[in-house]
Design a protein around this nucleic acid. Structure first.
Lengths: 188, 188
DNA sequence: GGCGACTTATTCCTAGTAGGAACAGTACTC
DNA sequence: GAGTACTGTTCCTACTAGGAATAAGTCGCC
């Protein structure tokens, strides 16, 4: 029916399938919490732009939450049409290969224009960042416990993806440690 | 001295440190060949935009290659100032964490809105893409033989980064195979 | 020798994305 | 009751992505 939207639109639409009506602000928080490990988290402004578009297309429904005292917050929920569109997109066979911007690999590639210590300390710094990231994702993973309230366990797939991410951080760590050994060994 | 440029500018500048004067077109080819495994390859138009800026800043030098019969091709080489700026950038401690857009992880995250076969066949398709990518990178790796012509082995770091990429594809494959097993097992 | 297909080379246009600033009300806390 | 932090939304600008348009050169081949 409709043309494909940018992938980020579907990412936000997908976050709304986990229940609760969210404001743009809350949706951004949910993206920062769970999505960012696999998808560059959209900027605040972009979240609102996407929500406006999805509302226009009837894929989400906006209602003004007037329960709040003076202030009105707009809350969004996915519509039946939105869910259908998401399913159609998920079933489409054309899945792109992951896009990566890896500043550490990029800088290491140019190692011949600096002294080895520069590359070495960059890799050390990356190991530290990796450990932090892994700890953050572990916290998210721990919060995704089996949900006995709902008939289908909504968190089954998020758990699988989080475990995948944790495995990735573990193997990335091992690979970087190996790289550090190779940098330390002077050119043979 | 100068403010930091976008990372892609340094990526292109870095590609010019491996010798040879390149046209915009050739630079794009070099990026597509080696860089794309670690950094989203800039579009043609962006390569020319960056080269114009780098020329403006005196970091690359452009000269019109008039050896070609009627047609004139502009060839670019990195200047001493460009090399200094690249070294300064490489030595800066503020290295960002890799940015990832992983459509497969994103789609798997929403597995609860489609039937398991959809997720399963998506993962199968990803395994195929991974194998192709790995083969492409292996070809690049094989071409990076030790260069006895130059005093410093220019390809030492590209080899390290390529090996890192190959290791990554191998572990990603193992992780995806594990995910397929988990998707096939019905919810416990 | 000229037709077609492919490669090299560059520029232009448009939509999408990033990032931050601006604005404003709410809640806490000292 | 003043300051600070958090919630919530909008606006602005520069940058990036992606493709189309243009054009000249090369190669085979009939």
């Amino acid at each position: 029916m409709s043309q494909d939207l940018p992938t980020t639109s579907y990412a936000l639409l997908g976050l709304l399938t986990f229940g609760d009506d969210l404001s743009g602000y809350e949706l951004k928080q949910r993206a920062d919490r769970t999505l960012r490990f696999y998808w560059v988290s959209p900027a605040m402004s972009q979240v609102y732009t996407e929500l406006a578009r999805l509302t226009e297309l009837g894929l989400v429904h906006a209602r003004d939450d007037t329960t709040a005292p003076t202030r009105s917050t707009r809350r969004y929920q996915i519509t039946a049409a939105g869910r259908r569109d998401l399913q159609r997109w998920l079933a489409s066979t054309a899945v792109e290969f992951p896009a990566l911007k890896h500043p550490v690999a990029l800088r290491l590639l140019m190692g011949h224009v600096v002294d080895p210590e520069t590359s070495r300390s960059m890799l050390d710094g990356y190991l530290t960042m990796l450990a932090e990231r892994r700890a953050e994702l572990q916290t998210v993973r721990d919060s995704l416990v089996l949900d006995p309230e709902s008939a289908v366990d909504r968190f089954r797939f998020p758990r699988m993806v989080a475990d995948w991410g944790l495995d990735y951080y573990a193997s990335e760590r091992a690979m970087v440690e190996e790289l550090i050994r190779r940098v330390d060994t002077d050119p043979p």
